[in-house]
């Protein structure tokens, strides 16, 4: 009788050392190649893609390999009259890409090159009477957008542009009996949503609402026998959850509850020795998204060759210090 554990097995041949140079080369090559189909297919999230690439390069100490001018011009060109940013030229303004744009501008210390007033107007206009946030004018509601809005305003030092109490109340109304959070009231707990909700409460100094022991417990149960973390019960381990689960644990002061060595081994096994970059799981195709979250996860786990990452903003700690954003950590 086979046991139905949903997990992967790490091969002895899997990489066990951090291949930093390879990852730098991978990201550099990725941003240069505009291979038609793949490039066109991912254009709807280009702004976030650029944020992932730049952040991981900065964490690896190689931001200077990217073209600041080109990036800033692109970002500037994506701002709409309403103040929000689209994912790319021709795409509509949305909170997700507005946060990515603000993160990119913050990394490059280039916020002043866009209309900041308008961004603040856009973000605050999306808050609803119940405290929730629309992602854009079409009205989808999700706790991810609550995080985007608050993180955006925090980086722009303008948190008071929204109703903070209501925003907090809405997020708390998405808390479940297991201590986790879902995308909307009544929805299942999900590590990605938990990261957003806990991060948002951290920025707003309201972490006392979190049931840290219960939530920490649930988050630690995401670690599978392979050492990898999944995002919810019954899911396969995935490198991006090394970020969402770990960052949440870090924020609530329970990072030491997981088995660090096993997780490091899992993350390293997700590297591609030939191409560089990280995949979601060992042997899969690499991409910039999982490369950032693999590197950021290792940073949280204390890997010395990587610069310190801020657990709330997923940006280099010194960038957050330079801007002077404060947050609460338990």
């Amino acid at each position: 009788m086979g046991t139905p554990v949903k997990d992967v097995e790490l091969k002895d041949s899997a990489p066990q050392n951090l291949l930093l140079d390879k990852h730098v080369a991978y990201i550099e090559a990725y941003s240069a190649k505009k291979d038609e189909y793949e490039y066109v297919m991912t254009e709807y999230l280009r702004m976030s893609g650029i944020y992932w690439g730049l952040t991981v390069m900065d964490l690896m100490g190689s931001l200077d390999r990217m073209s600041r001018e080109e990036v800033l011009d692109f970002v500037k060109g994506c701002q709409h009259e309403c103040g929000g940013f689209g994912a790319s030229i021709g795409h509509d303004p949305h909170l997700l890409y507005t946060l990515s744009a603000v993160q990119i501008l913050s990394l490059y210390d280039g916020v002043s090159s866009v209309n900041v007033e308008k961004i603040i107007e856009f973000v605050s206009s999306l808050q609803q009477p119940d405290g929730s946030f629309y992602g854009d004018k079409w009205g989808e509601v999700d706790t991810r957008f609550s995080f985007c809005a608050v993180a955006c305003l925090a980086l722009l030092k303008k948190i008071d542009a929204i109703n903070v109490d209501k925003a907090v109340n809405y997020v708390l109304s998405c808390m479940n009996f297991d201590g986790g959070f879902g995308c909307r009231p009544g929805s299942e707990s999900h590590s990605g949503q938990i990261y957003c909700c806990v991060g948002m409460l951290s920025i707003l100094n309201r972490l006392h609402h979190v049931q840290a022991d219960m939530l920490g417990w649930w988050l630690c149960e995401r670690q599978l026998p392979s050492g990898g973390l999944n995002g919810r019960p019954e899911k396969l381990p995935d490198v991006c959850y090394s970020w969402w689960v770990l960052a949440s644990l870090k924020i609530i002061g329970r990072l030491h509850w997981i088995d660090r060595d096993k997780l490091v081994r899992f993350i390293l096994a997700c590297q591609d020795e030939e191409t560089g970059g990280f995949a979601d799981r060992p042997g899969d195709m690499v991409d910039p998204f999982h490369t950032l979250f693999g590197i950021a996860g290792l940073s949280l786990l204390g890997e010395r060759q990587i610069r310190g990452v801020n657990p709330v903003f997923c940006m280099p700690e010194d960038v957050i210090k330079r801007i002077g954003v404060s947050m609460q950590l338990l």
Partner: peptide, 13 residues
């Protein structure tokens, strides 16, 4: 989305 589950200040799950 006009739903809200138990408005609360105490993190009521």
């Amino acid at each position: 989305d006009n739903s809200q589950i138990e408005p609360n200040q105490s993190g009521n799950p």
